Simulated scan of single mutants.
Amino acid sequence: MKTVNGIARGDTAVLESLYHDYFPMVLNMILQNKGTEEEAKDVFQEAVIVLYDKIKQGDFELSSKLKTYIYSVCRRLWLKQLGNQERAFQDVSNYGEVIPVEDDLAKHREMELQLSLMEQALEKLGEPCRTIIHDFYIGNLSMQAICEKFGYTSADNAKNQKYKCLQRLKRLFFSTT
Score class of each variant (00 low, 15 high):
168 R>V: 02
136 F>A: 05
175 S>R: 15
156 D>A: 07
154 S>K: 11
171 R>S: 15
168 R>M: 07
165 C>P: 02
169 L>Q: 07
167 Q>W: 12
173 F>S: 02
147 C>L: 05
156 D>S: 08
174 F>H: 15
156 D>E: 08
155 A>S: 12
174 F>T: 14
169 L>G: 01
160 N>D: 06
137 Y>D: 13
151 G>Q: 05
168 R>P: 00
136 F>W: 10
136 F>I: 06
146 I>D: 00
172 L>T: 05
170 K>F: 09
174 F>K: 14
163 Y>P: 03
153 T>R: 06
137 Y>M: 15
160 N>V: 09
165 C>G: 10
160 N>L: 12
139 G>F: 15
153 T>C: 07
156 D>N: 12
164 K>V: 00
138 I>P: 10
147 C>D: 06
158 A>H: 00
156 D>T: 14
168 R>H: 05
147 C>Q: 11
161 Q>L: 03
153 T>D: 06
175 S>P: 08
138 I>E: 12
156 D>H: 08
145 A>Q: 15
140 N>P: 09
154 S>L: 12
153 T>L: 10
143 M>G: 07
157 N>V: 12
155 A>N: 09
154 S>M: 08
161 Q>V: 06
157 N>P: 11
141 L>F: 13
136 F>C: 05
149 K>V: 11
157 N>F: 06
158 A>P: 01
158 A>R: 00
145 A>Y: 12
157 N>D: 07
139 G>D: 07
153 T>A: 03
159 K>V: 03
164 K>N: 05
142 S>L: 06
171 R>N: 15
153 T>G: 13
145 A>L: 12
161 Q>M: 11
144 Q>G: 10
151 G>Y: 04
138 I>Q: 13
174 F>V: 12
173 F>M: 10
137 Y>K: 13
168 R>G: 01
166 L>K: 02
158 A>V: 00
175 S>Q: 13
160 N>Q: 04
148 E>F: 05
166 L>R: 10
172 L>S: 08
142 S>E: 02
142 S>Q: 04
164 K>H: 08
148 E>N: 15
168 R>F: 03
151 G>A: 06
169 L>K: 10
169 L>W: 04
148 E>V: 08
136 F>N: 04
161 Q>T: 07
160 N>A: 07
147 C>M: 14
136 F>E: 00
147 C>H: 03
162 K>T: 00
171 R>C: 09
153 T>Y: 05
170 K>G: 02
175 S>M: 12
146 I>R: 00
145 A>F: 09
161 Q>F: 09
156 D>Y: 11
138 I>F: 13
170 K>C: 05
151 G>V: 04
149 K>P: 09
144 Q>D: 14
140 N>A: 15
169 L>D: 05
168 R>L: 03
162 K>I: 02
141 L>Q: 15
143 M>S: 07
167 Q>G: 01
162 K>Y: 02
174 F>I: 11
